[in-house]
Design a protein around this nucleic acid. Structure first.
Lengths: 359, 359
DNA sequence: GTGAAAGCGCTAACAG
DNA sequence: CTGTTAGCGCTTTCAC
């Protein structure tokens, strides 16, 4: 069946192309009877308008691009990204946009990405995952007039639009919690220090210590890479300096850290208290269950798309900076439950959500 | 800067639109000097052809769709999918296709998906992740003449093109390995039995037992759901029936099973031998390291795209059934290394790859 | 080698 | 309310 076109529908319904177009786009000024007739023909033929033609005529593709730079190599290791993608996809479905995924895995991909996404007629807007220092793609995007939103604060803001969670406050909250539990030798397993997320969480850690008069010990700061193994390796280095507690900048790294602790013959939280970040499902399943910072990953992606669409429709204007809040979820790895006399049953542990009082 | 068009380039280079088009598409029959001049203008203006216009004229969008049905709810829990997506994205980059991602998370999404992906002028071909029984999308796709490839054998083949791994042989290999190690009470934690993957792996398990004269014990067959928690829960049920060994249909479930075993005060592999499936990174990191079936996930995605493109270009014709092989990777969870006197060092355990001799 | 002209299938003024 | 008429920006015969 050679593709049926709007012209065919017009002929079959005995009206002009304009009228069919009006019916298609739900415009007024069409006689009910005519509308009815046209709709029936459309139904019968299973006709769907040609996207390319419509895009060309309207100068609007109803397509959004999601760019994952190569520097985000843990796209495949960290469940964070599937969840983020889910939120983004849900929003796209919701607002009738199609999502194009640009996963850059080689240097070549990265070099070719700009011509690909800046081609006219392809994307109405671009969502880009904030990567490491020096993603010049972000600068290019800012220079162009393509609507875009960066997921995660970029290093150089330069009028860019971004959405982020308040990582400083979140990390501070996590570390304050450990301090309140009586710990002073608190280590941190950060993410790669070439990203703003990692730097912000490290800063929150430092601020919490400072505000509580705890001197900074460089030995207790170890750089991880957001992978399970990275957390494991970082913890092994930390162990040499006898931390009483550790704040890991992601749940996945916390799991790796817990493994290293166990391997050293120590136990969580008895010997070392542990707090993670993300609140992925694994936080509830790991042994012991993980006290962690809950961040609304999927909602984050959803909101990013909403911002982008508002930008496209000129309902809002750059620069937009949207920050989302987080929560501390207390489970067993921090030891708070033991202190409070709550029985430690890691199957049914009731999650206790505490929102920090100050800051 | 109002978008520069091919017409502008033509004017600036003082040639016709046809000539610019020829240069753009690397066609012959253009005087070298002219080609040079045109290319320079293109360079200077940073011109990129309008995708929608080109798609409309060529009736080819250079865009592929990846559809993840709602039934594949563990898209977010199982690292399998990010890796698959990576392979698909790499192939798309390689062959200059753009990838559109359709992640269906609600019933509504699922109902609206057909009109969305069958719209003319949007996709040149469709890749669909095989889901549970009754994905009528697959039937519709087969009826239409849109080139498509299903990742994973569908329940009703009906002339559809699909790519799969040899799950029966793989599972058989895993279970045979356990049998060779002397086990007879071997349990299986399968995936959801509404999918061909799970059914095939279960069949491989049954065939291995049958060929070795081991009677089937229904109590040793437990259905999981490809999540860590599912593996944990399934193992807890299995424990009541004292299995000597367990074959888990995914690494993630194997990790959950190991946790249940540990919680019961038993040890892997001393008390219960364990074999997984997938060979995800976690298989090398878990404690003990996981003996598992290696399947080439990323290559699988890559090949799926290649098949799809060949179909689009009519280099091959439906129905196409492409099956990939797997390998058994022996690590520590099966106990083979202890038997062979190989020191069990779960940090540096050298992976031993064994390809089964028969079948 | 190169250009003129006719589409690709749709939207959007502008008349009526 | 409806049809006519121009495009949207590119490819592709077909002449020359």
């Amino acid at each position: 069946m050679a593709a049926v076109t709007l012209e065919d529908i017009a002929r079959m319904a005995d009206v002009s192309r304009s009228t069919v177009s009006r019916v298609l786009n739900g415009q007024p000024n069409v006689h009910p009877a005519v509308r009815q007739r046209v709709q029936q023909v459309i139904e019968e033929t299973g006709y769907h308008p040609n996207v390319a033609a419509r895009t060309l005529a309207m100068q609007r593709s109803w397509m959004l691009g999601l760019v994952i730079p190569r520097s985000v190599s843990n796209f495949f290791a960290d469940p964070y990204f599937p969840r983020l993608t889910q939120g983004i996809a849900q929003a796209c479905n919701r607002y009738h946009y199609t999502l194009a995924l640009f996963l850059l895995s080689s240097k070549e991909d990265e070099e070719n990405i700009w011509p690909r996404i800046s081609r006219k007629g392809l994307l109405d807007g671009i969502l880009i995952q904030s990567g490491q220092l020096g993603d010049q793609l972000i600068d290019r995007l800012a220079d162009s007039n393509i609507p875009s939103v960066i997921a995660g604060r970029p290093f150089h803001v330069n009028g860019a639009n971004y959405i982020d969670v308040d990582n400083v406050a979140a990390a501070k909250r996590a570390v304050n919690h450990l301090i309140r539990l009586g710990h002073r030798r608190i280590g941190i397993i950060s993410g790669m220090l070439l990203s703003t997320v990692s730097l912000d969480r490290l800063q929150g850690y430092q601020e919490a210590l400072a505000e509580n008069g705890i001197p900074l010990d460089k030995d207790l700061i170890v750089e991880g890479d957001f992978t399970e193994f990275g957390g494991f390796a970082a913890m092994q280095r930390l162990l040499a300096f006898n931390p009483q507690a550790v704040f890991a900048a992601s749940d996945i790294m916390a799991v790796g850290a817990a493994r290293a602790i166990r391997l050293a013959g120590l136990s969580v939280p008895k010997d070392i208290a542990l707090v993670g970040f993300d609140d992925l499902p694994i936080a509830s399943y790991s042994d012991p269950t993980l006290t962690t910072i809950h961040q609304p990953i999927s909602e984050f992606g959803f909101k990013a798309v909403e911002l982008l669409i508002d930008l496209i429709d000129s309902r809002i204007f750059p620069p937009q900076h949207y920050i989302m809040e987080t929560e501390l979820v207390i489970r067993n790895s921090c030891g708070a439950n033991q202190l409070q006399g709550v029985p430690v049953n890691h199957e049914n542990a009731r999650d206790q959500i505490a929102t920090l009082e100050h800051e």
